Simulated scan of single mutants.
Amino acid sequence: MDTPAPNDAARPRLSACIIAFDEADRIVDCLASLAFCDEIVVVDSHSADATVALAEAAGARVLQRRFDGFRSQKQFAVEQAAHDWVLCLDADERVGDELRASILAARDRGFDAAAGYRFARLSDYFGRFLRHGNAYPDRVLRLFDRRRGGWRGQREVHEAASVDGAVATLRGDLIHYPYRSLQQQLAKTERYARMMAEHEHARGKRATLAKLVLAPAWRFWRGYLLRGGFRDGWHGLVYAYVRANYVRQKTIMLWMLSNGQPVVTPERGAGDGKP
Rank of each mutant, 00 (worst) to 15 (best):
M1C: 04
T3F: 03
T3Q: 06
R11Q: 13
L14W: 01
S15N: 04
A16Q: 02
C17T: 06
I19V: 15
A20T: 10
F21T: 13
D25W: 04
L34K: 06
L34P: 08
D38I: 11
E39F: 15
V41D: 09
S45N: 14
A48K: 14
A50Y: 02
A50F: 03
T51V: 05
L54S: 06
E56Q: 15
E56Y: 11
V62F: 07
F67G: 11
D68A: 12
F70C: 14
Q75F: 10
Q75D: 15
V78H: 10
V78C: 11
A81W: 03
H83I: 03
L87V: 00
L87H: 00
A91G: 10
D92F: 11
G96N: 03
D97T: 12
E98K: 09
R100Q: 12
A101V: 02
A105R: 12
R107F: 03
R107M: 03
A113C: 07
A114M: 02
R118Y: 00
R121W: 05
L122R: 12
S123I: 02
D124A: 03
R128I: 02
F129I: 02
R131I: 04
A135R: 06
Y136F: 10
Y136D: 04
V140H: 00
V140C: 00
R142N: 00
L143V: 01
V157K: 14
E159A: 11
S162W: 06
V163T: 04
D173W: 06
L174Q: 01
I175C: 07
P178T: 01
R180L: 12
Q184Y: 03
L186M: 14
A187E: 12
T189W: 07
R191I: 06
R191K: 14
R191V: 09
Y192P: 08
M195K: 14
M195A: 15
A197P: 08
H199Q: 12
E200I: 07
A202C: 05
A202G: 05
G204F: 01
K205F: 08
R206G: 01
L209I: 09
K211W: 12
L214D: 14
L214G: 13
W221G: 13
R222E: 13
Y224E: 05
R227T: 13
F230N: 04
G233N: 01
H235V: 00
G236P: 05
V238E: 01
A240T: 04
V242C: 03
V242L: 08
A244G: 10
N245T: 03
M253L: 07
L254M: 05
S258T: 03
V264C: 12
P266F: 02
